[in-house]
Nucleic acid binder design. Structure first.
Lengths: 244, 244
DNA sequence: CGACTGGTTGAGTGGTCTCAAGTCCTGTGG
DNA sequence: CCACAGGACTTGAGACCACTCAACCAGTCG
């Protein structure tokens, strides 16, 4: 844990929703927070629990998943430095609908519900931030629904690799190098398929020269090839449409 | 169109997010709105358009859909009397990500963006309403993602019938009678499958005695049978169950 | 050294899609 | 009023994608 974390000097704040706050406001924020370390595999909150506040990821990686009826994890999202955690249930004023679990050792800052809502009254601009954030997340979720319903597994995997590149990728010449903190099974849980099927398609992509990998080190060699896997016919549509 | 619509006496307001407003606040709301009739099949807004305000459905039925890469409609939701329309893009401050189309003749009230946001400043309680609404919608969307990824088409159809019952159903003894304003193709577009597959499973459910139907008149005879289609094993889970 | 987890591969099966034909219903113009 | 066109619905046959089951290998941790 080393030195204590300070919201004002927090290096990940620039990625977070607290990005535009003034120094005074940050000071208040700083004083209401508690910093908690979590170990790999530790559960942060559980589906069904009542939220008592808001988490902010300072370091590490968290997966948020639901359990399907046959007790498989369905990963809804990955959270990392700068991301809020558990905000949906808090703002919706209902129990958590998913479970959050540390994938690595993590450091989370926690803001208690009561303090946090009081803070809201004082910094009303945060309302707009939150409304916008929730609205965009909802848009992303709906894009996701559409993508899932209309794309077979191979395309979903190609799309997953491309979006993981945005978060975990580092350009390396024309290629991208990724170090993914995900097992094959977790990749499967992200796109709603089985471990075996993920492996098969990864192998296929490798055989075709789109990617290479060794363990959890991946290199995307041919981005456009992967992109064309996601829509074999034609790639764009008029009027500003986009896929996540 | 008949008589003009008044927010204060509006019959559908009890279903809407304007439910708890005071008479004065409603008066303001009433004066900023425009009421617009739409005919069946008319498009209200398009994917990619910039939102200029908020719609509120007074009567009729609207479908909100995206187009998949192979130009199929993917229906995201149905809106009817009392429902807001186009609020997500408005609050997220981004273009519409879906298209809204009248399925029947409709009457919509429209609140212009500028007026509406000014109104927000005056009635801050609406912030909580909106944040809660968006949070819950996001929760529903995420549940939906999980359901889609983990259930085969037969189960999704069973679930669809059960949830349509909540909106369009009228109890009739032990059974439920539904009059669905949906074609088979639209039912398919709701659960991400094809018209033919919907027909086949509807036939199967009829053969098994779960439902009967004639055109768009459906009767659900055996609710628990349909429910058991949605989860063959067991229906609920303790909070905090984990997969190995 | 065994137990265990994660990854890889094969064989077989089944659910769902595609293509295609055919029927029923509805609206429209003659 | 009828003929017709077009859409919605129904059904069949075949193909294929992805799942299940099962085996095997490679690390890793006790």
């Amino acid at each position: 844990m080393g030195k204590p974390i300070d919201c004002i000097t927090c290096g990940v704040r620039k990625n977070s929703l607290f990005r535009e706050l003034s120094a005074e406001n940050l000071q208040v924020l700083n004083q209401m927070k508690v910093t908690i370390p979590y170990r790999k595999r530790q559960v942060i909150f559980c589906e069904g629990n009542t939220p008592f506040g808001l988490y902010c990821v300072n370091s590490g990686m968290v997966k948020v998943y639901k359990l399907t009826k046959d007790n498989q994890q369905q990963i809804m999202r990955l959270a990392q430095a700068g991301d809020w955690l558990g905000y949906r249930a808090l703002f919706a004023d209902e129990p958590y609908r998913a479970t959050a679990e540390a994938m690595t050792n993590c450091l989370l800052c926690f803001f208690e519900k009561k303090d946090f809502f009081r803070y809201f009254q004082e910094v009303p601009q945060l309302f707009f931030t939150v409304v916008k954030k929730l609205g965009r997340e909802l848009g992303i979720a709906e894009d996701h629904i559409c993508a899932i319903l209309s794309q077979p597994v191979r395309q979903r995997l190609a799309e997953l690799l491309l979006s993981l590149k945005e978060v975990f990728g580092a350009p390396e010449g024309k290629a991208y190098r990724l170090t993914l903190p995900l097992s094959r099974k977790e990749m499967a849980a992200l796109i709603g398929t089985t471990q075996q099927t993920v492996v098969r398609f990864l192998m296929e992509f490798r055989r075709k020269g789109y990617i290479t990998f060794n363990g959890k080190q991946y290199t995307i060699l041919d981005i456009s090839a992967l992109e064309s896997e996601t829509s074999p016919s034609f790639g764009f549509r008029l009027s500003g449409t986009r896929t996540a």
